[in-house]
Amino acid sequence: MHFEDHEFEVDKDGEGIVGAPKGRGGNYTKEEDVVLRKTWLDVSRDPSVGGDQSKDAYLLRMKEHFDLRNVSGIDRSA
């Protein structure tokens, strides 16, 4: 799967994208957004777990995977 690179202006605190719509998109930096995409791909395609897991287990795996790869220094909640 391919994601096109886009140029975004990050706010002065480095915590959001200037001019991004409200919601998730405005709360993540460009680097975090890339990590989040890769996290979703890795976790959702993991053959050792499959699709038979609870929502809470899935979200916990997403958070753990994201936290290990997130280098922004911003702590994100689940």
Score class of each variant (00 low, 15 high):
residue 3 F to D: 06
residue 46 D to Y: 00
residue 4 E to A: 09
residue 61 R to A: 13
residue 69 R to K: 14
residue 52 D to P: 01
residue 40 W to P: 00
residue 30 K to V: 08
residue 56 D to M: 04
residue 31 E to K: 13
residue 47 P to T: 15
residue 54 S to D: 13
residue 7 E to V: 14
residue 4 E to H: 08
residue 28 Y to P: 00
residue 51 G to A: 11
residue 58 Y to G: 03
residue 77 S to A: 04
residue 50 G to S: 11
residue 56 D to R: 12
residue 45 R to W: 05
residue 6 H to M: 10
residue 50 G to D: 11
residue 78 A to M: 14
residue 68 L to W: 02
residue 44 S to H: 03
residue 53 Q to W: 07
residue 3 F to W: 04
residue 68 L to P: 00
residue 67 D to V: 05
residue 32 E to H: 07
residue 45 R to T: 15
residue 58 Y to P: 01
residue 5 D to V: 15
residue 27 N to S: 14
residue 3 F to T: 13
residue 71 V to A: 07
residue 36 L to H: 07
residue 76 R to F: 07
residue 26 G to P: 02
residue 29 T to R: 05
residue 64 E to H: 03
residue 30 K to M: 03
residue 24 R to G: 04
residue 40 W to K: 14
residue 35 V to P: 02
residue 59 L to C: 04
residue 15 E to T: 15
residue 47 P to N: 09
residue 38 K to F: 01
residue 65 H to S: 09
residue 13 D to R: 10
residue 62 M to H: 01
residue 8 F to K: 06
residue 72 S to D: 01
residue 70 N to R: 07
residue 14 G to H: 05
residue 11 D to F: 12
residue 38 K to S: 02
residue 64 E to I: 08
residue 71 V to G: 00
residue 53 Q to P: 01
residue 70 N to A: 10
residue 28 Y to C: 04
residue 3 F to M: 08
residue 45 R to F: 06
residue 63 K to P: 00
residue 25 G to H: 08
residue 58 Y to N: 05
residue 47 P to A: 10
residue 56 D to N: 08
residue 8 F to H: 13
residue 50 G to I: 08
residue 17 I to C: 02
residue 38 K to I: 02
residue 4 E to R: 06
residue 45 R to M: 14
residue 31 E to N: 11
residue 34 V to F: 02
residue 26 G to E: 09
residue 23 G to K: 06
residue 77 S to Q: 04
residue 64 E to D: 05
residue 42 D to K: 10
residue 16 G to Y: 02
residue 21 P to Y: 02
residue 54 S to T: 15
residue 7 E to N: 07
residue 68 L to C: 03
residue 25 G to D: 12
residue 22 K to W: 02
residue 54 S to P: 07
residue 25 G to S: 06
residue 24 R to S: 04
residue 38 K to G: 00
residue 6 H to A: 13
residue 31 E to P: 00
residue 24 R to V: 03
residue 7 E to R: 11
residue 48 S to T: 15
residue 15 E to S: 14
residue 48 S to M: 02
residue 46 D to H: 01
residue 4 E to S: 09
residue 24 R to Q: 06
residue 30 K to T: 15
residue 37 R to Q: 10
residue 39 T to V: 11
residue 46 D to Q: 05
residue 65 H to Q: 14
residue 17 I to D: 12
residue 19 G to E: 10
residue 78 A to V: 15
residue 76 R to W: 05
residue 5 D to S: 15
residue 9 E to M: 01
residue 4 E to N: 07
residue 67 D to R: 00
residue 14 G to D: 12
residue 15 E to G: 11
residue 42 D to V: 09
residue 21 P to R: 12
residue 15 E to W: 04
residue 38 K to E: 10
residue 1 M to V: 13
residue 8 F to M: 10
residue 65 H to C: 13
residue 41 L to W: 09
residue 1 M to K: 09
residue 49 V to D: 01
residue 50 G to A: 11
residue 71 V to E: 13
residue 34 V to R: 11
residue 50 G to M: 08
residue 19 G to I: 10
residue 26 G to A: 13
residue 20 A to R: 01
residue 50 G to Q: 06
residue 21 P to S: 11
residue 36 L to W: 07
residue 2 H to W: 12
residue 42 D to W: 01
residue 45 R to S: 15
residue 30 K to E: 07
residue 12 K to G: 03
residue 72 S to M: 05
residue 51 G to Q: 08
residue 27 N to T: 12
residue 20 A to M: 03
residue 33 D to Y: 09
residue 14 G to M: 10
residue 8 F to Q: 07
residue 46 D to G: 08
residue 22 K to F: 04
residue 2 H to Q: 10
